[in-house]
Amino acid sequence: MSVLSAQNLNKYFYDPEKFHVLRDVSFDVQRGEFLSIVGKSGCGKSTLLYLLSTMDTDYEGQITMAGTTLTGRSQDFLARFRNEHLGFVFQFHFLLPEFSALQNVMLPGLKLGKYSAKDVEERAMEKLRLIGMAEYAHKPASKLSGGQQQRVAIARALINDPTIIMGDEPTGNLDRANTENVFAIFQDLARKGQTIIAVTHDSDFAAGSDRVIEMSDGQIIATHENSH
């Protein structure tokens, strides 16, 4: 069952001059699939991921996710959609520096309002434990190292049990052991029906995922399935 469908995506940058970043990108992602997008720096893979994440609305083409057409929706609609269906891990993690690790993880959950504040806190602790960050739960995000922040950001992406989890180099700042841990978590989630889409430079990471899309110059040049 297709959970995400991208049709003829075209994207331009206008500054400093008009530049065609994505050229007619189309693909589908199945429910429970663990997908990697690879390619050289500047090939447009991060830009593509931002389009899919609905955080960039300046594009041509159509994106449908979890049965909802997301192209042309209002900012508030997209925010609500992201809250419920999308977990995103940024390359530079982007935590709120004034809040503790636990609060950072809790905020999207509190916003969703599906669970009581107490339950959200328990769930957040659980996610932090999963990612090995439970002992830092009450430290301010600004006091954590880059790798620790990245792990908190992953826990934050998981808090609302989103339909799709997207990561822009989600393991870019992590050491070997933690990378493996995150990878195992992603595989486990995919097996349980959540969809993972990750942009990565890490060939081992890509090799471990279900399917790899390879991009170059704003186009998909190859797709291959990995057999495990």
Binding site: S53, Q75, L86, F90, F94, L107
Partner: peptide, 16 residues
């Protein structure tokens, strides 16, 4: 402004 973008990325809407 960065915090605003992060909040929006994680699902907070304009009114929030």
């Amino acid at each position: 402004i960065k915090d605003i973008a992060i909040l929006k990325a994680t699902g907070f809407d304009g009114r929030d």
